[in-house]
Simulated assay, not measured.
Amino acid sequence: MEGMSEEVHSGTVPMKDTCEHQAECLKKIQAILDGGATEEEKEHFKLNMDICRPCIEMYKLEKCIKEALQGKIEKKCCPEKVATAIRSQIVS
């Protein structure tokens, strides 16, 4: 099969070396890491990660980037005056 390596992962299924749905997979990975994925999306991704090397690598990279950014961001409370001004503009 094209795109499959000779290496066997999980005992039975050959590991894919290419991903035909990379853009969609990236969106799912980001949703999973951001906590916005459905249980169905999480389960589908878990199954896919067992056989798709590009998705595994993309997940590791996205997770690493998110963790690095979270460590660099200083969290501050928004002044109530600013929050009120934003709310009033949204409502208007």
Rank of each mutant, 00 (worst) to 15 (best):
M1W: 02
E2F: 10
E2K: 13
G3N: 08
M4P: 01
S5V: 06
E6N: 14
E6W: 10
V8H: 02
V8I: 13
S10F: 11
S10H: 08
G11M: 14
G11L: 11
P14H: 01
P14M: 02
M15T: 04
M15N: 05
K16Y: 12
K16V: 07
C19K: 03
C19E: 13
H21T: 15
A23W: 03
E24C: 09
C25F: 05
L26D: 13
L26C: 07
L26Y: 07
K28A: 09
K28Q: 10
I29H: 07
Q30P: 00
Q30F: 02
Q30M: 12
Q30N: 09
A31M: 13
A31D: 15
I32Q: 09
I32N: 07
I32V: 06
L33F: 02
L33E: 11
L33S: 03
D34L: 11
G35C: 06
G35T: 10
G36K: 01
A37R: 01
T38Y: 05
E40T: 14
E41C: 03
K42G: 15
K42Q: 15
E43R: 11
E43G: 11
E43S: 12
H44V: 06
F45L: 13
K46T: 11
K46Q: 08
N48D: 14
M49C: 15
D50F: 11
D50Y: 13
I51C: 04
R53M: 14
R53V: 05
P54H: 03
C55S: 01
I56C: 09
E57Q: 14
E57T: 14
M58Q: 06
M58S: 08
M58R: 07
Y59C: 14
K60Q: 12
C64D: 15
C64Q: 11
C64I: 12
I65P: 00
I65V: 12
I65Q: 02
K66C: 03
E67I: 03
A68Y: 04
A68R: 04
A68N: 08
A68I: 15
L69G: 01
Q70T: 01
Q70A: 00
Q70K: 00
G71F: 00
G71I: 00
G71V: 00
K72H: 01
I73F: 01
E74C: 09
K75R: 08
K75D: 06
K75M: 05
K75P: 01
K75S: 05
C78Y: 05
C78Q: 03
P79I: 10
P79N: 02
E80P: 15
E80A: 11
K81Q: 15
K81C: 12
V82F: 09
A83M: 11
A83F: 07
A83N: 02
T84I: 15
A85W: 08
A85G: 07
A85N: 06
I86Q: 10
I86A: 12
I86N: 03
R87L: 10
S88A: 08
Q89G: 05
I90V: 06
V91I: 08
V91A: 09
S92W: 08
